[in-house]
Design a protein around this nucleic acid. Structure first.
Lengths: 347, 347
DNA sequence: TTGTACGCGTTATCAT
DNA sequence: ATGATAACGCGTACAA
């Protein structure tokens, strides 16, 4: 009995068995290269026998294309991120590329994670989380790895990216609440470092101030971008009797809004929107479930991912400072049942 | 002005700049190799200047360890999968390994996806989805890549794996419902090819039949492992007036159970558990939200992932047929409010 | 079409 | 401690 060889078969092994050159094996496996039909078949047969599959890592050494893309996401327990990752994995898989997944939970270690990613000669990096401006710039310039920011952007606009009109989203929510008669507003903010939370808060505030709402009428608490933290801190805020309660709450992301909703209804026994109105932003599936039916602004994830993929197709553009584009897509207002709707027609 | 070089710096470039040999550069970057302190510093300085980082792909070519692990998940829109993936990415990241993520949505293309994964010389493959028995066996044997099945198992037990006691889970749910007085049962099944759904259904049925429930008292419909499909098909079943309605529903996974819950309460206006009782399995976060409070059996994801990681540590064992272990962990009964609870004390 | 020979960027072995 | 030099597995010019 032959001893089992511990290492996998190489193209040389196949070549030897098939009685051809190693180059022939390589050709047999690359579509559209000149090789006679019967020779290819002989090679494939031998390959099958040895359980041979080409080693993509080795091939990427010579071609300088790894066909791998690093995707850096935040906490996957936030459905927005897992929905995005799903879209990316599917999308890349279709174009024959693989996703090397990285998760950054603590904002702190964001840079370190990017560092890890860069050790692999990935064809591109997609960043959907982490506040890593300076480092990113250096990498993009120094290593020559194209970077696309998804749902994030830098003020400088020096890195390509796709994101939603978050200022507009905040403003639209403010409008809905204001026109529904709200007067005392509470913002539950997410990561203050992230552009997403910042922009939404800013859009919300700006709209209200322009409508004459006094600055003291807009309060702000922290929700740490999570369901649990939001639920806890909103409950605490409402139980602290020292200040008047808000009548409208804008949680900067849906997952936080759901925490707030459960705090209001379950923990505090309030009616939404009867006692308080509430809205979020993102448009995650969970918010659409009938038990919640959250009023929100939906991010067009599919379209955003598709756009990202397109940007990466023309990767050369990403290295040319003049061709860098930062795309801002509009969000879609989803009128749920947590903010009173305006009457249909004016009589 | 120097022209920007398009390719990334290599150890040779650094060596040249620092005036040392290429080997010295390699040593400077590998901890614990013999190199003088000042030489290392000189190298690191030069490396920093050139934005040099070691290319892990090239290194894995010589070390035969890629430090990459393929994780094949099902649809990430099922929270159970995204929670698992989150745990894997975090866990692997901590031990310096990277996750190459693959998603298989159609059960059909499962084998093809595995094929893709194998092109990369990953150190291991974790399969959390896909019904790919024969192919997997061949790969594990032929390529010598360790495989661990997560939340899945083959009848043959010839591939290492970790999963929950799904038969026990089904039985436990059956017990809760039966002792709460249910008489007509409905099973909403998931992927009939997957061992998970199959085992849970079997455990549920077996328990009831043993308690004298007639086979005609146990109905079965398809939920396609998704929220939407379950909601739709349960609604359809209840609106078809030709058969008596069940008084207990076991949806084989939580995400499906939530679909059923919304169908019952929102679409059909029924009370749960007043009119019908309902339970799921998995223990996803979403089910714990107060708007649902689903009765379920929780899978110990963290523990399952930790065990998987441990198995991979001793990768040699996975190649030795005698050392392959298939671990079955108990699930935890979570008494929610969708199945009536038994009275606390017997008088 | 086919084979030879070299390069991709690292690690590892061997002298020194 | 240090520097040549040989793998690692594959693409690909080049010559035949």
């Amino acid at each position: 009995m032959a001893k089992k060889r511990p290492t996998r078969a190489t193209s040389h092994d196949v070549a030897r068995l098939a009685g051809v050159s190693q180059a022939a094996v390589s050709r047999a496996f690359s579509a559209g290269s000149s090789i006679s039909k019967d020779k290819r078949e002989r090679v494939l047969k031998a390959a099958h026998e040895l359980h041979y599959v080409p080693n993509k890592l080795a091939s990427s050494l010579s071609t300088a294309r790894s066909n791998m893309v690093a995707v850096i996401v935040g906490n996957l327990n936030n459905p927005f991120y897992s929905e995005s990752l799903q879209a990316f994995v599917t999308g890349f898989q279709e174009s024959g590329r693989q996703v090397l997944a990285f998760s950054v939970t603590d904002a702190a270690d964001g840079d370190e994670v990017v560092q890890q990613a860069v050790y692999y000669p990935v064809d591109a990096i997609v960043v959907t989380a982490a506040p890593l401006s300076s480092k990113l710039l250096k990498i993009s310039a120094g290593l020559g790895i194209p970077i696309v920011m998804f749902n994030r952007h830098l003020d400088s606009n020096r890195i390509a990216g796709v994101h939603c009109d978050n200022r507009g989203a905040g403003a639209r929510i403010a409008e809905a609440m204001h026109s529904a008669g709200a007067e005392r507003f509470l913002i539950v903010r997410g990561d203050p470092e992230g552009s997403t939370s910042r922009d939404r808060v800013e859009g919300f505030r700006t709209y209200l101030l322009a409508r004459g709402v006094p600055p003291t009428g807009i309060e702000e608490i922290d929700g740490a971008s999570s369901y649990g933290a939001s639920r806890d801190s909103l409950r605490a805020r409402f139980r602290a009797g020292d200040r008047p309660r808000p009548d409208a709450i804008y949680a900067v992301s849906d997952i936080m809004a759901l925490g707030c909703l459960d705090a209001l209804r379950t923990d505090l026994g309030l009616r939404v929107p009867g006692d308080v109105m509430l809205a979020g932003s993102d448009g995650i599936r969970q918010g659409r479930l009938s038990a919640y039916d959250l009023t929100t602004i939906r991010q067009p994830i599919e379209q955003m991912v598709a756009t990202t993929l397109q940007m990466l197709e023309s990767a050369e553009d990403l290295k040319n400072p003049d061709m860098i584009q930062v795309l801002e897509l509009p969000g879609e207002f989803i009128p749920g049942s947590t903010v009173p709707r305006p009457p249909r027609d004016k009589p």
